[in-house]
Design a protein around this nucleic acid. Structure first.
Lengths: 336, 336
DNA sequence: TTGTAAGCGTTATCAA
DNA sequence: TTGATAACGCTTACAA
């Protein structure tokens, strides 16, 4: 039931029979304290289960050791790896994160920003739900880093994903597997990421002196249903492809299901690459799915690192791109 | 770059030409201030973009308006809805949550608890990754509520899911659909939830004067692969079932895929129910999946509510169970 | 209606 | 080596 009020430094000092100042020094390993005194103070602190009040400390130092994380993705697919990255960058227990969900609502975002600044966070990370550039929040009372969705403000700091490279390495892998008739099936065309990934793939295919199967990428939705529909579309209008490069793992999952049910063997006849390396889809599908990993934890770690630099006055504006890499599984690399 | 230091109440007071005390009263709507004075203070505050320092306020009031959320699930499937529930219970902007991921490691958990208590959170919510009871943290400096994984400590407060009811309503629904030969396929037998759900289903089936198809539930893993394997097992050893009650949506997804590929029509010949109502699986499968929703946001909201009560000195120990409900889709209810 | 002053729990500066 | 004392930014008796 947690009743009695927490012990303060004054309590510790009293119990140890020293002044508050001395107790403080002893506990903070200052070297102007006699060994015997320090021992007595530590003893007293242990006995009272003393925990220094971080509020008081922060009030004095001007630093809270806390950063605000404002996210816009309800399912936490982006924010959790980014939170982990932030925790890692600081080192265990050094920094805490206040996580707020703005749910895509800019009013709610403003509210949370207000509350976080009032709590005197040392800095802010704003996590977008989709990759497209977002308006800058302008000048706030603390440094801000935009993660995943970069800011359009030229003076802002952003860390995002290099979707073009993601598309490129997927295509290069398929080419390296000997595939030449590569169909591109990607998601919602209102997403910049869908275009960027397609552009990267197109560039790699063109560099090999080829063009994508069916001439242009197919845009649709980020869903399994679209993956299945796209395969039917392809088989009806443009059969003969030997690879499908997908804009997401969900799409790829639909593609795999449709191919299997259509009696097409993967990867023998057709290779398939997904995107996101979402374990639950990539590892659970038949066959398991080669996929592009965006390294969101790295995005989070870099965002945190740049934020910490900025807090220390060494911030540098601009957008940083984290490169994706390919995780190989059975949909392109036959087992055995 | 966020340079100049934030305005303090003293700055506001100086600009308005009043004392700090008066400025404070004006800003906090105390009624001992002349209207004209108040207006001047508000004006000054606006001009300086004054934001009261929550740290100073907390130091005085003894409340931070912050709660600590320690989670153990890496993918955030439990913690995000629970975070949302916590935010909702408090009201927008009233309360903030410090989210820490302990990653299933009790050392890391202890570390985070230390840090959170040092930051003087008003209370703590501990979110487990799986439902099984966990050891109590004992007496801490602030109230604690255990969410999803209840504490074994009789004096602790826990909010968890009523898995037995979840199993029961799934079975009752299948019975109401006229199914009598119900196979139960559930997950990892080391999870208490797997057993509880099965028990609930068994009870409902027994109450209808029946027994499950194949006499006992099939335990395996929380995976699609196990769902598929279980169907093959059933068809080989115990064909003739007219429903499959699954322990998770992933299992159900595997079941649906195996049935479809085996030429069995769902829901005409066999009905299928999942568990978790995980949108991405339940809505994306063919046919879409009827599933048990655990109402995790409610778990979070209730956990927060009880925590807030405890903070106000009105805490009540014990385990509270949130009831699941069924979300109907095509795998049990034919369209049209 | 306004202002003075004490205090919340620390740390840092300076005397003793 | 220790201990007063002054901050940090705010709220709130209490005095003017």
């Amino acid at each position: 039931m947690a009743t009695e009020r927490a012990a303060t430094l004054a309590d510790v000092a009293a119990l140890a029979g020293v002044s508050i100042a001395t107790a403080s020094k002893a506990l903070n390993n200052r070297d102007q304290v006699a060994a015997a005194t320090r021992a007595r103070v530590l003893e007293a602190a242990k006995e009272l289960a003393f925990q220094p009040n971080a509020l008081a400390r922060s009030l004095l130092s001007g630093r809270t050791g806390t950063i605000g994380l404002v996210t816009h993705d309800l399912d936490g697919r982006f924010s959790i790896p980014i939170l982990l990255g932030v925790e890692d960058a600081a080192g265990l227990g050094k920094m805490s994160a206040l996580l707020c969900d703005a749910r895509g609502d800019s009013l709610r975002e403003a509210y949370h920003l207000e509350a976080l600044q009032g709590r005197r966070v040392d800095g802010l990370v704003i996590v977008g739900a989709r990759n497209d550039p977002r308006p800058s929040l302008g000048e706030l009372s603390v440094p801000v880093v935009y993660a995943y969705a970069p800011s359009t403000g030229p003076d802002d700091m952003s860390v995002t994903v290099d979707h073009e490279t993601g598309g490129r390495i997927a295509a290069e892998h398929l080419l390296a597997c000997g595939r030449t008739r590569i169909a591109i099936v990607t998601g919602d065309p209102t997403y910049g990421a869908a275009h960027a990934r397609a552009e990267g793939a197109l560039a790699a295919i063109a560099a090999a002196g080829l063009e994508p199967w069916g001439t242009t990428p197919l845009f649709g939705a980020w869903s399994e249903a679209w993956g299945r529909a796209a395969v039917e579309l392809l088989i009806a209008s443009n059969p003969g492809f030997d690879a499908v490069l997908c804009g997401s793992d969900q799409i790829a999952r639909g593609v795999l299901d449709a191919l299997r049910e259509g009696g097409v063997s993967v990867p023998r006849e057709v290779s398939v690459v997904g995107h996101d390396n979402w374990e639950i889809f990539a590892a659970g599908s038949r066959p398991s799915l080669t996929s592009v990993d965006m390294h969101l934890e790295t995005v989070g770690r870099r965002a945190a690192q740049r934020l910490f630099d900025a807090i220390d006055g060494r911030g540098t504006p601009g957008i940083e791109y984290v490169e994706s890499s390919l995780v190989l599984r059975e949909s392109t690399v036959p087992t055995g």
